[in-house]
Nucleic acid binder design. Structure first.
Lengths: 147, 147
DNA sequence: GATGACAGGTTTCATGATGGAACCAGTTGG
DNA sequence: CCAACTGGTTCCATCATGAAACCTGTCATC
């Protein structure tokens, strides 16, 4: 049977994973955040086959994460650009990046890290704070139903 | 051909997705953070078939995200508990949850949100800050090679 | 200490998703 | 006008997913 759709889940995490929880989507968004816009750029960067890329780009557009825009270089081609909804995935990618950097060994000789572009300095770790400013950890939150 | 392994990728985001970028793993971690420990609890909560759940739990254990511990109720069964590495996925889940809550419509009548357990108050949005305290957005960071 | 139910799987099989390669139409550069 | 490039589509083999049946060890009860 087809994998179950989580689109109608009550849990917002499950709904998110339904949309961007597949193998390629977040990597496409990552590249888009780095400024990539063209089909061929994504294909080259990801090494994914073209039929799959076509399919993923189409769903991302359908979900309002990317949109098609006329090419910036004046050619007749079109480019994929992030919408506000797509750019809001930034924190998801940062969280994934910080976790990977901390817990997964990089290949020998090339360690990448995200830095503050303006100053070239390393970033702080993401922190979740309560309204009163306390930093919250895994045990300090709970899901509740709201009106 | 099998989906390409990203385990040796230079990008920490890609390495993370290689480990927890599949359909179920993060949902299992979400449930584990909520306190679930038993095979049957996960199966009931996720509605996944048992062979798939077996497989996912095994990889999560192999990756050091979960570990097997003797049951807390004194029975001979074993339970799956998060390691520190697994608990560190908290921010990834928070980021996914905040994005889903903001951009994906919940099913009618049941909106869930994450709150500060101690006070029942809503949380602040995750913020990424530079070392000097500036809040950084998608355009303000860049990946660099470090020694 | 037999017995039936439950926990936690494994096996089998059908079906859907993935990926490589070949092919193709519209665009561009020369 | 022709060749190469962009951005796909189609076809096919293979892999992963999922449902259901089965199986083994544990627990609760009598």
């Amino acid at each position: 049977m087809r994998r179950k759709s989580l689109a109608g889940a009550v849990c917002p995490i499950a709904r998110s994973l339904d949309v961007i929880g597949d193998w390629w989507s977040l990597l496409i968004v990552r590249d888009a955040l780095r400024g990539m816009r063209r089909f061929s750029e994504f294909q080259k960067s990801l090494g994914v086959s073209k039929n799959i890329l076509t399919q993923r780009l189409r769903t991302l557009v359908a979900q309002g994460i990317l949109e098609l825009a006329p090419a910036t270089d004046g050619s007749a081609y079109r480019e994929y650009v992030l919408t506000a909804k797509g750019r809001d995935l930034f924190h998801v990618l940062v969280a994934l990046g910080q976790w990977g950097q901390e817990h997964l060994d990089p290949p020998a000789g090339s360690r990448l890290t995200m830095v503050d572009r303006a100053r070239g300095e390393p970033l702080r770790r993401l922190e979740l704070r309560a309204r009163d400013g306390r930093v919250l950890g895994p045990g300090d939150t709970i899901m509740t139903k709201i009106a």
